[in-house]
């Protein structure tokens, strides 16, 4: 035990283990060559999936709208519907930015965080989630890429305003 009074005895027992770093032994550096062209090739490989993403995006919008309707009509199924809505929004926020739709990521992220803050889901909460789905639909309809420009920002502000109106600070 250290005699230094500043050392917390509960935290002071530790062991440092050298990291063999096996990956460093396997990954061969290619001196004098930049990674730029390789990264460009990797990004291009993913950009080719853009069409698939847009198809998935359309499908997810319909799934979200359907699950909100189910939750409204059958309160017993609310928990199950919210799980599906949360999963769908979580996937969209993770993928959309990769394909040039950061606005979709932002709206989906807002929806996920809104769900995480709620304990119960009634008409008000489902309405707020519905506004997020409307936002996602508008991005698709208006083909808003990037941050969506002035229309995209207006859309985001509108969603934030609806959340603020219905969620006590």
């Amino acid at each position: 035990m250290s005699s230094d009074p500043q050392v917390n005895p509960k935290l002071s027992k530790f062991e440092i283990i050298e990291n063999p770093n096996k990956i460093k032994l396997k990954a061969k550096p290619l001196p004098g060559r930049s990674a730029d062209s390789m990264l460009k090739k990797a990004n291009s490989a993913v950009a080719e999936m853009s069409g698939d993403f847009e198809l998935i995006y359309s499908t997810e919008i319909e799934l979200l709208a359907r699950e909100i309707d189910h939750a409204r009509q059958d309160p017993i199924r609310v928990g199950e519907a919210i799980d599906k809505i949360r999963n769908s929004l979580h996937d969209l926020r993770g993928q959309a930015g990769t394909f040039g739709f950061p606005l979709v990521s932002k709206i989906a992220d807002s929806g996920c965080k809104y769900i995480d803050r709620q304990d119960n889901f009634g008409i008000v909460e489902l309405t707020v989630l519905g506004v997020h789905v409307d936002g996602l639909r508008a991005v698709k309809h208006e083909a808003l890429r990037g941050d969506g420009g002035p229309l995209g920002q207006k859309l985001l502000k509108g969603i934030v305003a609806v959340i603020k109106k219905h969620e006590p600070a």
Binding site: I16, I17, E18, N19, N21, I23, K24, A27, A35, M38, L39, K40, A42, N43, V46, R93, G94, Q95, A96, G97, T98, P102, S105
Partner: peptide, 21 residues
């Protein structure tokens, strides 16, 4: 997320070059 080639490769390089004990 969202992930790009640059962000992913940067993490891999950090593991290769900056492995911590």
């Amino acid at each position: 997320k969202p992930v790009t080639a640059d962000t992913l490769y940067r993490r891999i390089v950090t593991i290769i070059e900056g492995a911590r004990s």
